[in-house]
Design a protein around this nucleic acid. Sequence first.
DNA 1: TAGTTAATAT
DNA 2: CATATTAACT
Length: 285
Amino acid sequence: MGEEAGGYGFDFGGGGGGYGGYDGRVTEWETGLPGCDELTPLSQPLVPPGLAAAFRIPPEPGRTLLDVHRASSATVSRLRSTSSSPSSGNGHAGTHANGGSFPSFPGKGAAAGDDSGNRDNNSAESAGEKAAATKRARLVWTPQLHKRFVEVVAHLGIKSAVPKTIMQLMNVEGLTRENVASHLQNYRLYVKRMQGLSNEGPSASDHIFASTPVPPSLREPQVPHAAAMAPAMYHHHPAPMGGVAAGHGGYYQQQHSGHAVYNGYGGHGHGGGVSSYPHYHHGDQ
DNA sequence: TAGTTAATAT
DNA sequence: CATATTAACT
């Protein structure tokens, strides 16, 4: 609605710890950048609807100023406390710039292939928008998100697959360590439960976890073995995610013939673009 | 501080 | 009832 179009300053709460200087704003970065009115409005998709339709590009979820702010502060705060190879020199160090994902709000039906429904988030909360900002919406682990999770966990191995590391490698905007920790807890339980059953497909109730097969690497504590895993096929790049089965025709389908295994999004094989958006469920309460 | 587990909430 | 969040404990 009537968002203020003005100030884009992030405020890191007056606290700022060890950062001197900036007050949450690096003005040097702004020189030469287009003005606010030269930019595409948030309410308007970057890809024209017609073009999107022609190429079967699913409409991008709308983002509000609030989303941008959240994502920005998340990114900035991460950059500030970056512990990843800060050592000197690399100008383009951890430029994963991967398919970063942004939190979004599925009006409903997270299963729908097309989420044209662009339900802007926050449907008006009384008058308190600040208080609401503190409450994160309930994260929904979509098959895509879980897949990424599994890939990362498999990549790390049982040993180092801990919440923080997983979160960092997933590099999903807005995803917290708590989110990952919780999911990891459930995932471990799921894996354990399945091992007990040795064979047979997963219960139909295991929605999410069944969507991505458990990598053999995770079946049990694998001794620190060098070379045993797939060489270099792992990479979470921006666009064509899932190095596994590039050109796949549907990855996760279980050896279960009877029942559909919850196909989150039909496998649109368009290799392009950011397909994984973490979904949230609108904050309530 | 961060990870794991248990409890609680949605 | 499944699963995400929060608290408790290490």
